[in-house]
Design a protein around this nucleic acid. Structure first.
Lengths: 193, 193
DNA sequence: GCCATTATTCTACAATGTAGAATTTATTCT
DNA sequence: AGAATAAATTCTACATTGTAGAATAATGGC
């Protein structure tokens, strides 16, 4: 007779019900705490629930991770829209871009595994979030569409490569988001010179 | 009595001995065939050997993968060193860089899992290979050291991000190395203008 | 009150990395 | 030559993982 055994079947008290939100939130928390994606069993333990209960809400672990990703991605920096005049155009967008990149990297650093999920996802939603905010920032530069496309591709993949390097490096301090300074400066020169 | 059971203990005939090279080669082959890193058991089966035999040569799977990586990385494009004159400087290095990038991406595409191993490795050796060849190519541009460093960082992480995207995308044709054209052009503009 | 639906736990399986012991052959020492 | 040691291999076993499928219990609609 297992001491820890819980009663089987649907729980009585209504408020006790497991909710998708709770699962997602706990998953996020464990990702931060453990620095990696938790196993379904670990997640279930944290929720004080049987592992299989989670599968009632998410058809597979991949689907759960996609939900986590979608929920997190909107937290990246939201650029401020300005009415710019003359000289400001040349500098403001760089600061905004810097901030967007840092917040994106910070997110990918805080939640290891997010990156791979993001890139594996069927839905383009999460990837679109960054693109959207990027577009807002470079809007005042009035680049032609193909140039914007190339610029976005170069930046996104650069950031993903950098994030991957951070995630793979075991010693946390060897690599941090501040180090994009040089490359990002070079990048800015490329798209506006 | 298992029909497939092999005799235990050290094999008699000398030539039969498993060699690290064989393990590495078979691992490479399976990576290409399966499009992912094989399990130790699969690798052992291909070698017609017990799984644990592999651990006699490599202390862990990670160490084996590092050996595979080190062995593969030297295959990337070796830039030709030229004596350039005047106008050629402005164009030749771009073609060389393009070729280097394509061969690097091709390698990372062909051997999924290589990227993560590369980035997780203690040894800087493999990472140095690309850096070395990059340096040869941009040498004639006579950039100052910090600029070279930034340029290398931007390019390497961009390529890693791109490679990761290729590896994560299940439909093979959605993403291929030819697509670096635009971003790479932009990049070249950045480092020499 | 009956029955379908919903939320949950339990049991079980196949795959994985790998520790540790057993076994057989090769090599080295005396 | 014989004994001891080392090397190369297979076997057995374990913990961890994702998840399929069945059993169980409460809820909600009729």
């Amino acid at each position: 007779m297992n001491v820890n055994a819980k009663k089987r079947g649907r729980p009585s008290r209504k408020g006790t019900a497991l909710k998708p939100e709770m699962i997602i939130d706990t998953a996020k928390q464990l990702m931060v705490e453990q620095g990696k994606i938790p196993s379904i069993r670990q997640l279930a333990t944290a929720l004080q629930v049987d592992a299989m209960a989670i599968y009632h809400y998410f058809k597979s672990k991949a689907v759960l991770l996609e939900a986590v990703t979608t929920s997190l991605i909107s937290d990246i920096y939201q650029p401020v829209v300005r009415v710019e005049s003359g000289a400001e155009v040349a500098t403001e967008w760089q600061a905004e871009l810097h901030q967007l990149c840092l917040s994106y990297l910070h997110l990918l650093e805080q939640y290891p595994g997010l990156l791979e999920t993001l890139l594996s996802m069927e839905s383009e939603g999460p990837a679109e979030v960054f693109a959207q905010r990027f577009t807002i920032i470079v809007e005042p530069l009035e680049l032609d569409p193909p140039a914007v496309e190339s610029a976005l591709a170069l930046l996104v993949d650069y950031l993903h490569g950098f994030a991957l390097a951070m995630n793979c490096n075991q010693d946390r301090d060897a690599l941090n988001p501040q180090m994009i300074e040089g490359p990002l400066g070079l990048y800015c020169k490329a798209i506006f010179c």
